[in-house]
């Protein structure tokens, strides 16, 4: 059962990713990306990571991609022209990508000390997840939150630029 679901959603995920590249209209590409992200959420679920799956849907498919489509709609971006690609990209690019992927795969397969994830019936409860997150991984967690705070402050600073008079007159 798990294996069948895995193949279905893995195929859906890859199909979405390929479609993302092939579509000429930005909004279709954005929608394909949503398909990719939701299928990834299902794969997480098959691995027993239910909280991660829900977070993936809420944050990526729900919030980030809504902003993507929002911007595309706001700019009313039109169809992109399809070019055949440069010759250099074909000659150098494809072998380079293949080599890079091979390298990455070798390193990952040879790496030691990585945990195992397997398709399973049971789920990792939110309790367990938060216990790990707030004890073993506390430092990365807090550093990430500071990073996000900096990003928020940066966004506020950028949008406030030159807006001083208008907000003062309100």
């Amino acid at each position: 059962m798990h294996l069948i679901l895995f193949f279905i959603f893995a195929a859906l995920c890859l199909a979405g990713a390929v479609n993302l590249l092939l579509q000429t209209h930005p909004i279709n590409s954005a929608l394909s990306l949503i398909v990719v992200m939701t299928s990834l959420a299902v794969l997480y679920l098959l691995l027993g990571a239910e909280f991660l799956a829900a977070a993936q849907v809420i944050v990526y498919a729900g919030a980030v991609m809504v902003l993507f489509t929002f911007v595309i709609m706001l700019l009313n971006a039109g169809r992109e022209e399809r070019t055949l690609g440069s010759r250099a990209a074909r000659v150098v690019g494809f072998p380079a990508v293949a080599a890079f992927l091979a390298l990455l795969a070798t390193v990952l397969l040879k790496a030691h000390g990585l945990g195992r994830a397997a398709m399973q019936e049971g789920v990792t409860s939110t309790d367990d997840l938060s216990a790990v997150l707030f004890t073993k991984l506390l430092l990365p967690f807090e550093v990430t939150s500071v990073l996000i705070l900096i990003a928020i402050l940066g966004a506020v600073a950028l949008t406030r630029h030159g807006d001083g008079e208008r907000s003062a007159s309100k």
Partner: peptide, 15 residues
């Protein structure tokens, strides 16, 4: 187990 998050997730897709 994460019923509440499921509801939030589905609503966010509904947008």
């Amino acid at each position: 187990n994460i019923g509440l998050l499921v509801i939030l997730g589905i609503t966010s897709i509904g947008v």
